[in-house]
Nucleic acid binder design. Structure first.
Length: 582
DNA sequence: GCCGTTTTCGGCCCGACTGTTTTCAGTCG
């Protein structure tokens, strides 16, 4: 395993999240114990920075560079070292004896924070979700001062939410929903501007909740319209400038109304990431400026805030696109004038992973071809499943050659679009492909992917992929990690070997834009770019609507800092085909 | 517990909303 930061991030950030998890737990306990809030914040900040570290913390520790991580001083560096060498942090072991694990877990319930957790534990000995639920149902909480019916109800609701919570929602669901909300509120009286912010605007692959920001002279109208939307399942709060609802599907949506003069500052603030905002605020402080969600102040005077660009302007920074606001080097790049010229949807000239009714797709060859032409692309590849994928009615070699002929005929008739005949070839569990070279040779484009044997060893699966890469007709590996967000983890893979293989054989890696896949992910994209490996963004569409997923794929590579030259889809056809010569 | 071209000590972000109060504490982002 090499020491490259991005590969490490992909395969081995286990220690990072273990340590950041422990620091957060320490912070929770200190909070419950009502300790110095700044000490608590120090732990939280350190946890955030460790979680967002682009490499393995063990490597950083080996180089003696722990102190270089923002928020890590002598004490916390010592605790990290202690954990890496002994697997434990002694101080934490002491703290957890004071506050049982079950008590800590109550912090996850909405409406419950450190004060109530401690209060319930101290007064009623409540140390688990179940005990709290029982106490609330028996109205025993109401016997305590400051707790009445409403609080008890909210606690029960919160427990219910935690119990059925499915965790984060993927972009494929959140993105259209946010758009629908924005569209529905656009026409409300007094609304000047309206936009989704938060992790959704940064296009993270999964999001916790949706944040909508509104510039309106009549906030009450916005609030009324918002809580009356048909998607609303429950109104969590409704105020003059801030409201929250939970949709019928359980997704929380927050809305916030600001004045025009604060629009830009609020947009920056609510877009985040938190780590990025902290960096900006720190820079501002050094310049004697103060950034808040309302604007930028200098000596108590407001000097910026109306437009988001102004926030970066006053700091002397070029505008940083939302997708890379993660404090993983974008501030430095901006300072040095080295921000990437990120790929845009309009740069995409084709889609190279499409299914038709020859296998498990819905559209005919002709319908799919016309659908891609409508998307404004000048070329596309049909890549139906091959024979061993029986569940998807994979095509055998004979049918594949027939389809190839059909496509040639179709190309003569169709105007404004060039269809490339291809296939999504199965990588069998023994590393062979289920289509012969003789047939692959007839195709313009073949991608290979794993659809079976997910449980094999890391070495075996890696080897299978490397075998496929060595085949001169395989131009790209489709959905390389095999993960399905919220459903299935990625199979185990030696990513160093996969990246090396891709580089040596000139094989591209796919960014599959299917919302459950988004595979390879943003971090891997950044790694690929560093190594000069090309990526190709494909929708894997089986229907007309799914062609729209391209937007999600583009957002993945944008988060991975990719520029048009890093992405095969941006090339004109001739150059595309030339780039494929292995 | 961290940090430093104002500082090695004394700062460190705070406003909105709810539910309980009768002027405010707790939670959240």
């Amino acid at each position: 395993m090499g020491g490259d930061p991005y590969t490490q991030a992909l395969v081995n950030t286990v220690k990072n999240s273990e340590i950041s998890g422990l620091f957060n737990k320490i912070a929770d306990i200190l909070e419950i114990k009502n300790e110095n809030p700044f000490r608590i914040r120090a732990y939280r900040k350190a946890a955030l920075n460790i979680e967002g570290l682009p490499g393995d913390i063990e490597d950083v520790a080996l180089k003696g560079k722990l102190g270089d991580i923002p928020g890590i001083g002598k004490d916390l560096a010592g605790k990290i070292q202690e954990y890496l060498s002994t697997g434990k942090i002694n101080d934490y072991e002491k703290l957890r004896k004071e506050i049982p694990e079950g008590v800590l877990s109550l912090m996850n319930i909405p409406a419950i924070g450190p004060k109530k957790v401690w209060f319930f534990y101290k007064e009623l000995g409540i140390d688990s979700l179940e005990k709290l639920e029982e106490a609330a149902k028996e109205h025993r909480l109401q016997k305590l001062p400051g707790i009445r019916q409403k609080t008890e109800e909210n606690i029960l609701k919160g427990i219910g939410f935690v119990k059925r919570s499915k965790g984060r929602t993927h972009l494929g669901i959140a993105w259209p929903l946010a758009n629908a909300i924005v569209n529905a509120l656009e026409g409300v009286d007094g609304v000047k501007e309206l936009q989704a912010a938060g992790s959704l605007r940064r296009m993270k692959e999964t999001i916790g909740d949706i944040d909508i920001l509104v510039d309106s002279s009549k906030p009450d109208k916005v609030m009324d319209a918002f809580v009356s939307l048909p998607i609303v399942g429950e109104v969590l709060s409704k105020g003059a400038t801030k409201s929250s609802i939970r949709t019928k599907d359980g997704l929380q949506v927050d809305i916030r109304v600001v004045k025009s003069k604060s629009w830009g500052a609020a947009l920056a603030y609510f877009t985040g990431s938190k780590a990025h905002n902290i960096r900006l605020r720190e820079m501002a402080m050094k310049k004697g400026l103060k950034i808040s969600e309302y604007g930028v102040d200098k000596g108590g005077k407001r000097i910026a805030g109306k437009r988001e660009e102004e926030i970066y302007d006053v700091l002397g920074l070029p505008f940083i696109p939302p997708e890379i606001r993660e404090d993983t080097g974008e501030v430095e790049a901006s300072l040095e004038g080295k921000l990437p010229d990120l790929v845009e949807l309009k740069d995409i000239k084709g889609d190279f992973h499409l299914h038709t009714d020859w296998s498990d797709g819905v559209l005919s060859l002709k319908e799919m071809s016309e659908a891609v032409r409508e998307k404004g692309y000048s070329f596309a590849a049909i890549t139906d499943h091959t024979k061993s994928l029986v569940v998807a009615r994979g095509v055998d070699e004979k049918r594949l050659l027939e389809q190839n002929k059909e496509i040639k005929k179709l190309n003569k008739k169709l105007k404004g679009i060039k269809i490339i005949s291809g296939a999504e070839v199965n990588i069998m569990s023994d590393g062979t492909l289920d289509v012969s070279d003789k047939v692959l040779k007839e195709l313009d484009w073949a991608i290979a992917s794993i659809h079976s044997g997910f449980q094999q060893s890391k070495e075996k699966i890696t080897w299978r992929i490397l075998q496929a890469m060595k085949n001169p007709f395989i131009k790209a590996i489709a959905h390389p990690s095999g993960r399905l967000l919220g459903e299935r983890d990625a199979y185990e893979l030696d990513w160093d070997a996969v990246f090396n293989g891709a580089r040596q054989t000139g094989t591209a890696l796919e960014v599959n834009a299917y919302p459950q896949r988004l595979d390879i992910n943003d971090i891997a994209c950044r790694r690929a770019k560093e190594l000069g490996i090309k990526v190709v963004i494909n929708t894997d569409a089986h229907t007309r609507d799914q062609l729209n997923y391209m937007k999600l794929g583009v957002s993945v590579v944008r988060r991975g800092w990719l520029e048009p030259r890093d992405v095969l889809n941006t090339l004109p056809l001739e150059e595309f085909l030339k780039a494929l010569r292995k």
